[in-house]
Simulated scan of single mutants.
Amino acid sequence: FWNALVSKGAQAIGQREKRWLSCDAGLPFFPSDFPDCKAYSSLTMSEAAEMVEKAQRRPPAVRPFRIPIPPPWNSIHVTRSVGESSNQKLTSDGTTGVGISSYGGNLYDGIVARTSDSLNTFLQTYASDSLLLSPHNTSKPNANLMKTLQEDETKAIAQIHQSSNKLCLVRVLLHAFKEGSFEDGAVVCAPTLADISLLKSGCNEGEKGRVTIPQSSVTSYFQEQHSGTWELNVPEDTQSHRWPIGFVTTGFVRGSKKLTAEALCDAVLLGRLREEQWREKDVKRRKKEIYVLVRNLRSCAYRLALATIVLEQQEGSIDDVHCL
């Protein structure tokens, strides 16, 4: 049976290859794209332990520095607070910080809008901003899935009404503007208008045409604490600092003709970015894609990317069911 399949050109794949195929098709993959699920916590804890064990087998001189696994999703709260208030709480070393639990339980305490209805409910509830987001009207699913989706929507909407201060993540597709390869766990940041102008200008020779952070900041952007938490550290001189709005869940698939990465980003911050990038632009020149910066966690360079919000493109989201 197996020999017959292979002789006809069949290829065996595992979970990694299945994840690549999902990303290539623009579809979410469980549990990598479901940070609100316990299965995601188990997977990332296993990956973190495997990475530590692999690093321990290398000589200390060539051992890579640790990066947060899973990504510190709740660090996005700092970016939210920067936009809402100028009063930032400083730690004793003069940096702004927020602690994120790295182990145990459900690591992400927020909402993932997987359907247009849940995103619309969030937009109506979050009344402090007029967010420029336009989720596609959800087409009604067939009767077999209606009950499941109704239960999902009821739970998601109840969470939204409980607290509009919670993060609301939406799935986005990232396309590199000119160059760059985005890895799993890469941080998605908010660019300034000057960043966009610089990286679009084509002046990419030497340091003058790049947006970077100091090499010393690469290892300290996220710091692991003795308590087992990860903390976002913002230096006193924030000129080179870019604020996180999300993280890449599936990086570029090597060998694929579609150089696309998938990420989860905060809906509020995406709406603010779009408003800033559309301001003073003629209606005909406004793009639906949102410019963002992406930085691999072991790199000092930010790459410009175009973010497409999936819920603004698709007819419905019956394949994205909220997970508890």
Rank of each mutant, 00 (worst) to 15 (best):
D184W: 13
E224K: 05
P191D: 01
S181A: 14
E153C: 15
A194E: 09
R171N: 10
C189M: 02
V188Q: 04
Q159E: 12
S216N: 07
V188A: 08
R210C: 11
K166C: 06
G206C: 01
N165P: 01
L174E: 12
D195P: 02
S201Q: 05
L173A: 15
T219R: 11
K166A: 09
L173I: 12
I157C: 02
P191C: 05
A194M: 12
Q162H: 15
L198W: 01
K208S: 07
E179Q: 12
I160W: 05
T212K: 11
H226E: 09
S181L: 08
K166H: 14
T219S: 15
H175V: 13
T192Y: 05
V211F: 01
S216V: 07
K155Y: 13
L199F: 01
A176Q: 09
K155C: 11
E205R: 15
R171A: 05
S181H: 10
A156P: 13
R210S: 14
T212G: 00
N165A: 15
A190T: 07
T154E: 10
S220E: 14
L198D: 00
G202C: 02
F222E: 06
A190W: 07
H161Y: 11
L198M: 09
D195Y: 03
R210Q: 14
S227R: 09
L199S: 02
N204R: 03
N165F: 11
H226C: 02
G185F: 07
L199P: 03
Q150I: 03
L167I: 13
Q162S: 15
Q159I: 06
T154I: 08
V211H: 00
S220L: 11
K155A: 11
K155D: 12
A190L: 13
K200W: 04
E205A: 14
Q162W: 05
V188E: 08
A158N: 05
V170H: 01
P214T: 09
L167V: 06
Q150P: 04
E183H: 15
V172C: 01
E224I: 08
L169N: 00
N165K: 15
S164H: 06
V218K: 11
T154C: 04
V172I: 13
K166L: 13
A190S: 11
H161P: 04
V187M: 08
T192V: 04
A176S: 12
S220A: 11
I213F: 06
Q215M: 14
S197W: 05
V218R: 08
S216Q: 12
T154D: 13
F222S: 02
E207Q: 10
P191E: 05
Q223V: 15
G209P: 11
D152V: 01
R210I: 14
S217H: 08
S197C: 06
L193P: 07
G185Y: 07
P191A: 07
H161W: 03
S163R: 12
E207I: 09
G209Q: 05
L199V: 01
D195R: 00
Q225V: 02
N204G: 14
H161V: 05
R171K: 08
A158H: 10
G202K: 06
S163I: 07
S216F: 00
S164P: 01
G202E: 05
